[in-house]
Nucleic acid binder design. Sequence first.
DNA 1: GCCAAATGTTTAAACGTTTAAACTAAATGG
DNA 2: CCATTTAGTTTAAACGTTTAAACATTTGGC
Lengths: 376, 376
Amino acid sequence: MLTIRLQYLLKEGHRHFTKWLKINCFLFYVHKADNISLMKKRVSLKDIAKKVGVSITLVSYVLNNKHLNRISKQIAEKIKQAAAELNYKPNQVAKGLKTNKTQTIGLLVADISNAFSSTMARIIENEAEKYNYTVIFGSCDENTERSKKLMDVLINHQVDGLIITPTEHSEKQLQYLVDNEIPFVLIDRFYEKLACSHISLDNFEAGKKLTSHLLENGCRRIGLITYRSTINNIVERNQGYIEALKEHGLELDDALVKEVSIPIVSSEISEAIKELLSMPNPADSLLFTANMLSTHGLRYIVTLPIKVPDDLAIATFDQSEAADLFYAPLTHIKQPLEEMGRLAVQTLMAAIEENKELVQLQLPGELVVRKSSIAK
Amino acid sequence: MLTIRLQYLLKEGHRHFTKWLKINCFLFYVHKADNISLMKKRVSLKDIAKKVGVSITLVSYVLNNKHLNRISKQIAEKIKQAAAELNYKPNQVAKGLKTNKTQTIGLLVADISNAFSSTMARIIENEAEKYNYTVIFGSCDENTERSKKLMDVLINHQVDGLIITPTEHSEKQLQYLVDNEIPFVLIDRFYEKLACSHISLDNFEAGKKLTSHLLENGCRRIGLITYRSTINNIVERNQGYIEALKEHGLELDDALVKEVSIPIVSSEISEAIKELLSMPNPADSLLFTANMLSTHGLRYIVTLPIKVPDDLAIATFDQSEAADLFYAPLTHIKQPLEEMGRLAVQTLMAAIEENKELVQLQLPGELVVRKSSIAK
DNA sequence: GCCAAATGTTTAAACGTTTAAACTAAATGG
DNA sequence: CCATTTAGTTTAAACGTTTAAACATTTGGC
């Protein structure tokens, strides 16, 4: 049983402790408060109207700066003052019901605890704020069922639009959005057959670039560690790898390609690396097609009696703290996250404003060469 | 000018391209769609009622499983079927207006792109989902102004409650929540004087534990790298450091304490470390009081001709990829994130259900000893 | 002075729900 | 066979906004 410090509870100002509570095997004190009423009723237009002695309409007009030319300056001033005094805050829910615009966008990411998603979330939130929009979010953990459920929840909350990183097999749900003309933008991934806006990396080109870089630095047996997935971004990254080999006159060796499952099982990656390094004609380098893959990979590699880049070159997609702080910082593809997030919001805003044009964009990734791929 | 691949745009099914667009120096194609109507009107109770030929009330009762004993089985069946056929989705906004419950909670984190926040966000979202709650979030980037603004936005959206990581100097805004009886729970940090629920780490004890560990492993000159802040968690961590020194019969040497500003300026940390290591009686170890501090610190330390832990021992608060993948994985305090997130949601749910008891809890951190602090 | 125009304000309906209360019709009891 | 209960359904008001339309008063032109 864990012990909990209670010093703060016992300090002055927090008296009247009446009982212990047990939640999840944690024992702690609770503060017994005076049994006050329900949550306070919030100030509405009605309250202001009553206070000033005018109709609700007039209050609404004044606070929304509408029909100002028709409204007397004095009354307007009185209303504004009363609103300030009462600390009026407009009820977005009521407003949303009436106007059919909630000023919220739904953000559906693959996994918010992954740096890619959380960075993107931050950028999107910042950009949305410029348009006076709030972000409602859901993290579906690459689970299609959960993704569907979250999408429903967001729609039920009448979001004005959605930004989505789609999971595998969610075409049907996305088609529903198209059919119902609910504005949305895909980010990071997309379905070729689905006529919708999407912003993503030029994965094929990036895969080619990263592979070519390894090849041009003397690698001949590049182990590819990638997801077992039909999602377009992964598939394209793999294709880029194959294309680069071809352009350099090399044959694809299937034994060098290791696919691991989503969500990641750490041991699967270790196993894959072990096999790649112990085969008769072993890999002289590794290419990871996502940050989670390289992070897990590195965790295993540091345990091996192997020196990067001399014994093994490494390259990966995406940035990560792990890639930065590994003793040989990883050569990687840097995605233009800022641009992608901003464009996604801008595209969505246009769609919400009834702009029916589809924006389908694949941005170039930047090859950042570092120590991990440059053997002496 | 960056080039954009257009292959997907040019594929079949995407015809009628009419113009180039230029956004943020990216050039790309847009798809000119048929100019269809506005967003489709969504299905409402009214539509179902009309289809079945009953009143709206009855539909509402059936779909909410209310007064079931009074409603004829056949009609109920018909209604359910019609709802399914029309793919009815309840309008949470309308429901929220009527019931004064939006089934949303607002989450205000310090910085969503920080692993602490994003992991917490994920846990909180998962837990909230169990209660049928959706999370609206804002990331205030440790900025009090922004925090105030976001809080207002969330309140305007009539969230049923809030989970907040408060920034410095936001007491006033939090007091407003108390005064207006808006349920909320602080997480990670709190204000002693504010009578509200909060869940956080036992920072003092953790700071003491981490410092004692270093001392007991032979360190005598522990450089403390911490934030220049009055926020309780940082202050307590510092106090824990001081208390541990005292208990081990050591005097606090102010020269060993380096405070850096929020948000972090990387060079400031490098500078601090440089000073600590170059003083007449230099530090033999470093204690970082947050993950961002150690991550930036490590970035600098890897550039130095110094061997951890032999030349310099290191310990830090919080886990991070960087701490894991550094050649000498960092000894650290592991926070019970899962527990904290879950308790925060549970506490908030109780508060929303009119439970007026305050829960104030400081959970113990776990000392995870690794290579960075154990000199040979 | 009368009518029209300009100015200032209110009325009322609507958005999609919920829910107490009312209503109707059928079943039951004495 | 009437009164009461029970079963099944509807009416209507409400939540806090927005907004077209109506209304009322003043001003100005001729």
